[in-house]
């Protein structure tokens, strides 16, 4: 993620660090004091709520601990077991499917839609309507998603009016696909919006020139839209990575009743952590093991973000 920042910070200050070290003028010292004052509340709260607990969890991942009795040292054994645990591996695969397959659909559809919505009538209305699932509670959406697609649900009822036999959308073979589809539905609007606004920043002049040169719709997309909204897209891709790895509420409420875990078919890494700690009927409280899996996901997140930045980096396009 640090690469993200390089564009943002120090755009006008080449090497502030070095200047400060050689000679701290009174002005610089005063600026440093103001700096500390401004960032201190955020830093303190950040440390209290996020950093402290994360460090604590990294430590706990080396122990066997149920939260009640004293922790037992395990070293890296939790991590070793994780890589042999079929439930974890399945959760990991599911997470990656949601991330990459879901992500591919969201971005392909997003770009595709965005390129067309740009010139459509009622575009503001379209934008708002597509954005709607983002503001609704994922729990509520997953309830609706279930009511829509269950055997005697609303979709099958409507299909019935067309004379189509009811389909088994939610059978255990299909339920993960439906969960991924639901996730795409819920998330697509946000990324579409971001991409669309990125495309909006492209001066119309370029499209005019492209049309004058006889470029087809696809060519306009390939040679104007795509390169000129690439930066926005890559930030959106990183946001999606975050959301996909954290995804919990929708899957949790979609898969099960409120007091039971959803079936393991749809577990992702977040549900795995929950299942290993609070989720079960008689909760497992395996905090060490669960923390180890969470630490792995945090590492994976770092790796994916770095890779994404590598892949998505392009020659800067001068406008």
């Amino acid at each position: 993620m640090s690469v993200l920042e390089s564009e943002r910070v120090g755009t006008d200050a080449d090497a502030p660090g070095r200047t400060a070290r050689t000679a701290a003028t009174p002005r610089q010292r005063s600026q440093r004091n103001w700096f500390i004052l401004f960032v201190l509340p955020a830093v303190l709260l950040y440390a209290l709520v996020l950093i402290g607990p994360t460090v604590f969890s990294i430590g706990v991942s080396l122990f066997q601990w149920n939260g009640l009795t004293p922790p037992e040292w395990r070293g890296l054994r939790n991590y070793e077991i994780l890589f042999r645990d079929p439930v974890f591996l399945r959760s990991l695969v599911n997470t990656l499917v949601i991330l990459f397959v879901g992500g591919a659909v969201i971005f392909v559809v997003g770009f595709f839609f965005a390129a067309f919505i740009r010139t459509m009538r009622g575009r503001n209305f379209i934008r708002s309507a597509l954005f709607f699932p983002f503001i609704a509670s994922p729990i509520a959406l997953s309830i609706v998603w279930g009511v829509l697609f269950q055997y005697r649900g609303i979709v099958n009822t409507l299909l019935g009016e067309l004379g189509i036999e009811p389909l088994e959308w939610l059978s255990s073979e299909n339920i993960f696909k439906m969960a991924v589809t639901g996730t795409i539905w819920v998330s697509a609007g946000l990324y579409l919006t971001i991409l669309l606004a990125g495309i909006d920043q492209i001066p119309p002049m370029y499209y005019e020139v492209a049309e004058l040169e006889g470029a087809s719709a696809f060519q306009r997309f390939r040679y104007v839209t795509l390169p000129l909204s690439w930066d926005v897209a890559s930030v959106a891709a990183i946001l999606w990575t975050i959301e996909a790895l954290k995804l919990f509420d929708f899957l949790f409420a979609f898969g099960g009743a409120t007091t039971t875990m959803p079936p393991v078919e749809i577990w992702n890494s977040s549900l795995f952590v929950y299942g290993q700690t609070f989720g079960d009927q008689v909760p497992a409280y395996r905090f060490g093991y669960a923390s180890a899996s969470a630490v792995l996901m945090l590492l994976l997140f770092g790796v994916i973000v770095v890779l994404l930045r590598r892949i998505l980096r392009r020659e800067p396009i001068e406008l």
Partner: peptide, 9 residues
């Protein structure tokens, strides 16, 4: 990127 699950306990 820190998921809520890792910090909640």
């Amino acid at each position: 990127g820190i998921p809520p699950h890792i910090i909640i306990i």
